[in-house]
Amino acid sequence: MLLSKVLQFVITGVANGAIYALIALGFTLIYNSRQIINFAQGEFVVIGGMAAYTFYVTAHLPLPVALLAAILVVTLLGVAFERFVILPLKNAASISLIIATIGMSIFLRTGAMLIWGKEAMTLPHFFGDKPWNIMGATILPQQIFIIAITLVIVVGMQLFFRLTVTGKAMLAASMNPEAARLMGIRSERMVMYSFAFSAALGAVAGVSIAPLVMMSFGSGAALGIKGFSAAILGGLTNPLGAVLGGLSLGVIESVGAGLISSAFKEAIALIVLLMVLLIKPSGVFGKIGTRRHAR
């Protein structure tokens, strides 16, 4: 009985945490390339989910096509964001960049509201909604899908950064932009790639949870904060840390909500965020990989 309860917390936590991990990875990629925090990251998630809804329900595209189309749209959005907002602010102070990405998040959020309205929407489960039973705990096929896709993305990203030329260039540009520039790597181009990537990751997260949560134009803020908390927990510069941070945050949240009170569930991520920021801003999993201090 107790075991199944604990197991349930862990399963729910890991499934939620996988989503946080994907969003956190987006923060990490952008921070590594440009040392900024993208306050509009949560909006990528929401627009991904909403666009998938439009392609699937309204345009009657087959589900896989609709999902890919949504991810593509958001990726292009990420590129446009970088070209029209981040690039012109190349020499701006960090306060200006904070305000500009906040401005973009408001713009995208209300833009989404004008396009899709205020109603919450949801997608059908990709592989049916019949829960599986594991030792008294249940897990939905959609949750398994989320965990699997996160795993695939994490492994894929590691391979990308280790094996491809573009990946290595991005890594080099993030670790030492000056040296990378001297070696002929165009770090501006790398910043654009990182926005494209993190927008795509956000969209993947968005389409994956769309069947599980009611998504509306305003859902991005909370998702963004949780993804960011996860990224900070993992050290912000470290992709692997972001994933571990996401998974731990998901579990902490589900255990906390189950044991204490669900009213405070929203506060848990924030409290974790504040504790890490105030006690150990370099993150709990910050030792692995590149390390950079709070600037």
Binding site: Q35, I36, I37, S94, I95, L97, I98, I225, F228, I232, A263, F264, E266, A267, L270, I271, L273, L274, L277, L278, P281, A294, R295
Partner: peptide
Amino acid sequence: PALRLRGHYLAMATLGAGVIMQIMFVE
């Protein structure tokens, strides 16, 4: 504690503190 942080980190920490205060007004 928070002012030891800079730029984006400080922005996020103060944002978190603000939201927690609002949650306390409710709870």
